[in-house]
C-alpha cells in the first residue's frame, strides 16, 4: 500500500500542476458566463475523472497486490 500511495501521490501532484491549474480559469469563466452549460460540463468532468481514476487505481492495485496461488 505504501508503494501505491507513493506513486499515486506523485502522479496526483503532477495532475494538480498540469491539468487542474489549466482548467481553473476556463471553468471559472464558464461558471460566471453560463450556468446552463457549466452544469452539464461539470457533471461530464466528474464522471470522466471517475471512470479514468477507477481504471487507473484498479490497474495500480492489481499491479502491486500479491499474486494469489491457485
Amino acid at each position: 500500500m505504501a508503494i501505491e500511495l507513493g506513486i499515486y501521490g506523485f502522479l496526483l501532484v503532477l495532475y494538480f500542476l498540469l491539468v487542474l491549474r489549466f482548467l481553473n480559469q476556463p471553468l471559472t469563466h464558464l461558471f460566471h458566463a453560463n450556468l446552463i452549460v457549466y452544469a452539464p460540463v461539470a457533471l461530464i468532468l466528474i464522471v470522466v475523472q471517475g471512470l479514468l481514476l477507477s481504471a487507473f487505481t484498479t490497474f495500480l492495485i492489481k499491479l502491486f497486490s500479491p499474486k494469489k496461488s491457485e
Partner: peptide, 30 residues
Amino acid sequence: GFGMLTHALKGNVDIMIALVMHTGAALGAQ
C-alpha cells in the same frame, strides 16, 4: 449526479474543488 446537476444550475458547485477531492477519494474508495 442528479442532485449535483440541480445544484450546479443554481451556481452552488465548485467543480474544481470536487475534482481535487475526488483524486484522493478514488484511491480510498478502491
